[in-house]
């Protein structure tokens, strides 16, 4: 068993982590935004519904949610999940959209009322105020917490092994089963390097948005 062999195997596993990572980001950001608007809605039932949703999703382990998404459709509706990957993606997107939505809400609510009022007295419509005045300020404020959450997502992708997705750590565990423990520790390098790149990216974005203060 060569180092190269192990590295190739681990890369095959890490590919699954990357799929979960990117698809989750792509799905959870728009869904999170939708949930944000729901939780900030002035229509009480919608607000109540989204708040409950966020409570349930944040209040239960992602690991459990993976099982629920994989098994519940088959058990309750007689339509079993065809692909475990689909189940994993659905669970991740739902879970992360809840967390993202709270970050978005925090960002939007941190913008002072004066910004909205200034837009209003200048005759801007609500949509114009949101897109032209508020949005960039929100983006600037949520970059640090989003960076946090996204880095957590990278590591959480490994949870997918509980529904038998052959991701990085599962690939390493196979070697452990054969008596080789070092590939398991080696997986840390994959996470570290990828998160290192993300950290650089977020640093870059923060710097780009640093052209103004406030």
């Amino acid at each position: 068993m060569s180092f190269m062999q192990v590295t190739t195997d681990l890369f095959t596993g890490f590919y699954e982590n990357l799929i979960i990572f990117f698809v989750t980001l792509l799905g959870a950001i728009p869904l999170g935004l939708l949930i944000t608007f729901g939780s900030m809605s002035r229509f009480r039932p919608i607000q109540w519904l989204t708040k409950t949703f966020i409570w349930v999703i944040r209040g239960t382990p992602l690991m459990l949610q993976l099982f629920v998404v994989l098994y519940i459709p088959g058990l309750l509706f007689g339509v079993p999940m065809r692909s475990r990957m689909t189940a994993a993606l659905v669970a991740f997107i739902i879970n992360y959209s809840a967390y993202f939505s709270e970050i978005f809400r925090g960002g939007i609510e941190s913008i002072s009322k004066g910004q909205y009022e200034a837009g209003q007295v200048l005759g801007m419509t609500k949509t114009q105020v949101f897109f032209k005045v508020v949005l960039l300020q929100v983006v600037k404020r949520i970059v640090p917490p989003m960076g946090n959450e996204i880095i957590t997502l990278v590591k959480d992708t490994s949870l997918a092994r509980v529904i038998a997705i052959a991701e990085l750590i599962m690939a390493a565990e196979r070697y452990a089963g054969k008596g080789y423990i070092w590939p398991l520790f080696y997986t840390g390098v994959f996470f570290l390097v990828f998160n290192g790149l993300l950290t650089l990216l977020f640093g870059f974005i923060e710097k780009k948005l640093d052209f103004y203060k406030g």
């Binding site: 910004q115 801007m124 600037k140």
Partner: peptide
């Protein structure tokens, strides 16, 4: 028109853009 006590300029825009934005829209 209204001038606020706390100015409420748009921080991400230059002086010129702050003045033109609403009219331009």
């Amino acid at each position: 028109g209204l001038v606020f006590q706390s100015f409420n300029l748009f921080p991400q825009y230059t002086v010129l853009r702050n003045v033109t934005l609403a009219k331009e829209l």
